[in-house]
Design a binder for these strands. Structure first.
Lengths: 239, 239
DNA sequence: TCGAACACAATCCTATAGGAAATACGACCC
DNA sequence: GGGTCGTATTTCCTATAGGATTGTGTTCGA
């Protein structure tokens, strides 16, 4: 009986994260949630006043944000919301995604057995939300909240593959990609035009995983991202 | 004459980086330079006293270090030097390198013409330092400084390929990999045993770039890293 | 009317002080 | 002797204040 008599069950979510992480979450939500104009100054003191905290944790949160690329910093001049992504950077982002996610798919194929069911569940949600989006679009009641929900379930599929690699480095890099992709969609796109295409391509990816051949999974993933890139180009030009 | 009478020439290296970046550089040098035992506490106040600065910039530098994975943080408990890399993590690190550097080679092959000369110059330095290492090892005067020089020229070759992609995201991720690889070599290895092999394999990579076929460059790079992984395993077991 | 210089305000950056938590150490009891 | 409790020190965390710098708006002069 080495068990101590713990009153467990109440303090389940201890969540001792300190002020820094809470400020980080709040600012991050503000950046990816609402559409903030690029170049907007992020005053340390102003944020501290708004959040009723001292400038120190705000300062730390901004350092962390800077590493994600969402904010830029000039010493002695302050922080700003990162400028709009350029066409050149967008191409680089897609190149990086193809390298990273293609490789991740190849590695995750080692554990296809446990991965495929989770991907199927995610795809099912993806389908459901797609249907909601289509209905809302037809009714003219497409809300921002629904769009965010769609982006989330879409990315969940991709994130599951990263997690399927069990590779902490790749998972960490996927976070960086994730924030950039989210912000890109927020500022560039205004709606969802390729939901059906994405569902079909995700289905193909699952099929490739079922085959058990890593190269096929990687090829399906690269093909998917390449097509997303192409559709993204069309959207940008039509805008 | 719109020129103001500037006393130019003396403040050439303005280098307005703020205290934060200078502290960051110093701590980083300490971590990758000297061998610091994993788990060592990094007291904010102590570092601030040593560097004669206030805790605030130290705190920001540590947040930045945390993102690189060299230090870990527990809220309300402080920062520590990241624990020794495990065998499992080492395998993940090599997997990530294969994905990242293989993809980078494929992308960099688009600009082979300008890249190959730079790679050749780096390889020449690599050869020269290898010769110095061999001579020093034979004479029994292998210094830590020389080892660091070897690691640097070796990594320069890999870093050039990342830069050759002109992809800011990949270049950024290469920095993360770089710090981990450097620290790994610092703590795991005690010497250089595969210098000649590395030179040969780097030569093959350049040849692949000369062929102009991206797939060959990627394959040569993956092959090289796979062999480094294998030799690293042997070293670890013999230790 | 345009340009430059000045002054004001806002902001960042750094330093110092105090409260809260965690670690380390010693004493005490079983 | 081992384990537990209590105290003291160290450390982290937050808040506040002051110096330095940047940006802005205004005024003056050509």
């Amino acid at each position: 009986m080495s068990e101590t008599t713990y009153p467990l069950g109440e303090t389940v979510t201890i969540e001792r994260k300190g002020l820094r992480d809470r400020v980080y979450d709040l600012v991050l939500d503000m950046l990816v949630g609402q559409a903030v104009a690029p170049g907007t100054r992020l005053s340390i003191d102003a944020i501290a006043r708004d959040l009723k905290v001292s400038p120190t944790p705000v300062r730390e949160a901004l350092v962390q944000l800077e590493r994600t690329g969402l904010v830029t910093r000039e010493p002695l001049k302050g922080y700003r919301v990162a400028p709009q992504i350029t066409d050149s950077q967008l191409e680089s982002l897609f190149d990086t995604r193809i390298v990273l996610e293609g490789g991740a798919a190849e590695l995750a194929a080692r554990h296809s057995d446990s991965l495929v069911p989770r991907l199927e569940a995610a795809l099912e949600q993806h389908r459901a939300v797609t249907e909601k989006v289509r209905a809302a679009a037809a009714a003219g009641t497409l809300s921002v909240a629904l769009l965010r929900e769609y982006f989330t379930v879409d990315w969940t599929f991709h994130h599951l593959i990263f997690e399927g690699t069990n590779n902490p480095f790749l998972i960490d890099m996927s976070e960086v990609i994730s924030t950039r992709v989210h912000r890109m969609r927020q500022t560039v796109l205004s709606g969802v035009t390729d939901a059906e295409d994405a569902v079909v391509e995700h289905t193909r990816i699952i099929d490739a995983f079922r085959s058990g051949q890593p190269e096929e999974a990687a090829a399906a993933m690269r093909d998917h991202i390449e097509k997303v890139r192409f559709r993204s180009r069309s959207d940008a030009h039509s805008h």
